[in-house]
């Protein structure tokens, strides 16, 4: 499998009140075409900064990329012209955000919001689609995320939908532009465990059905094991260990990973 996204030696710092602190240290990771890759770490470890740097939404300043490359399909995102980068963001790679309520606008219907995103995506990709064409695509994508009644959902306002349905809308938004890579930051974290299980299954089914690559960012080791075959473990801005998920969970090489796994309570009770 060829590598779709490759982060190489990425270092990022933040300067606040004149004090510089480095939050990413020489981070490298690779997402092969069509693969499901996890980036796991405790809060503050640098997962979201990594994701934001990849997506090009890092606030610069206070942030500064100190070094490294981010190759997407062989091209360096950090040095390519802004226009090309904008074209890639939200088209070839899409984000699924954590918090549905803050990513949705309460005063617009779902079809209005999906329509706006689709219009942008179409313009970036130079696609021609009229109002009716957009409506067809919106209903299609709502069905794709397993909405039982796409017509009704399309006419709804966010407040009328449950948390799980809103999370599905965010996934639909990410799918609209037919990306090759989905980056999901803590999907379903705010949801109940049964709804979270549904969302994770949906994400997994969608990426396999459509041959998408998935970069799953999470603090939850159980979520990692459920969705991704390969895992990067992050601590204090460094990748401490990476490998096949099963191998890492069964025989972690690093003390940090071992302690992290040991801290997770088991459904089987103490010590299995």
């Amino acid at each position: 499998m060829s590598v779709l996204l490759s982060v190489e030696g990425l270092s990022v710092s933040f300067t606040t009140y004149g004090r510089r602190s480095q939050v990413l240290h020489d981070v490298s990771l690779a997402v092969p075409e069509g693969a499901q890759i996890a980036l796991v770490g405790e809060s503050g470890s640098g997962k979201s900064v990594t994701m934001k740097t990849i997506m090009g939404i890092l606030p610069v300043p206070p942030a500064k990329v100190e070094g490294g490359r981010i190759l997407f399909a062989g091209r360096d995102l950090l040095t390519m012209p802004e226009r090309d980068r904008l074209r890639l963001r939200g088209t070839a790679m899409s984000m699924v955000f954590q918090d549905p309520m803050s990513s949705l606008n309460p005063v617009f219907t779902i079809q209005d919001q999906l329509g706006t995103i689709l219009k942008y995506a179409d313009r970036r990709l130079g696609r021609d689609r009229d109002r009716r064409g957009r409506r067809v695509r919106i209903l299609e994508v709502l069905a794709q995320v397993r909405m039982r009644d796409p017509e009704r959902v399309a006419r709804s306002f966010p407040i009328m939908l449950s948390g799980g349905m809103r999370q599905r809308i965010l996934i639909a938004m990410a799918l609209l532009s037919e990306p090759r890579l989905l980056i999901a930051d803590e999907p379903g974290t705010a949801l109940d465990v049964t709804t979270q299980a549904q969302i994770l299954k949906l994400l997994k089914d969608l990426v396999t059905e459509n041959g998408l690559a998935l970069l799953m960012i999470t603090h939850n080791l159980g979520v990692v094991r459920q969705t991704c075959g390969y895992t990067y473990v992050m601590n204090r801005g460094r990748i401490v260990e990476h490998g096949a998920t099963q191998a890492i969970f069964e025989a972690p090489a690093e003390d940090y990973t071992r302690n992290l796994i040991a801290a997770v309570p088991r459904l089987t009770g103490r010590n299995g």
Binding site: V193, T194, A197, G222, F249, R266, L267
Partner: peptide, 18 residues
């Protein structure tokens, strides 16, 4: 049963129990 089946677990032993 649904709750237990939904728990994201980290080992094969736990998986077998769901």
């Amino acid at each position: 049963r649904l709750l237990l089946a939904s728990v994201p677990v980290i080992s094969a032993e736990e998986e077998a129990m769901r």
